[in-house]
Amino acid sequence: MAQTTHTTTHGATPPEGTRRDFLMLATGAAGVVGLGAVVVPLVSQLAPDAQTVAAGAPIDFDLTPVAEGQGVKLVWRGQIIFVRHRTKKEIDEARAVNVASLRDPQADQARVKQGHEQYLVLYGKCTHLGCIPSGTAAGEPKGEFDGWYCPCHGSHYDSSGRIRKGPAPLNLGLPPYAFTSDTKIRIG
């Protein structure tokens, strides 16, 4: 490197020979690796902590108090869960639709558990921007399709929780759940 260092001013960009120098490269590379390693814990701490993850344990819910035509809201992992006991009419409406014509095509049968078609269990979160659609509790607007209506930007969901009108791209999500008996479900 000595023969290339002839800068007299303090402008001080290292001369070309130095820049390609292996030592400099190795040092620079090690520095980049070090900086990269520092980013890992700084980003990783943003993820849900162990307590939050563990607190997502399954919850049990007894469906008996939910009469036909009624719905309830539950909380699991900090998220709202809709449980609706559908009427015959609501089920029929949901099944009469031509699935292929839907924005997010899915048959009603695929959105309920077999043998428990009257119970619909959904994430209560609009797939547009995350508001809670109305229509679960008695008296709340249910939208144009006897399902749910999101007050934020006017998305309408049908009685199977599928998006029918408005800006939301997808149907209301299905949480993991199973029937532990005829009237009890375990969410999670």
Partner: peptide
């Protein structure tokens, strides 16, 4: 980073620090 997980309330400040030490990813390191 610590302020994202700490709670400045006398009844829970101590345990929120322990929460950082135990549950937060790399919280002990921070």
């Amino acid at each position: 980073v610590l302020a994202m997980h700490y709670t400045p309330m006398s009844s829970v400040a101590f345990s929120s620090v322990e929460h950082i030490m135990r549950d937060v990813n790399y919280g002990w390191l921070m």
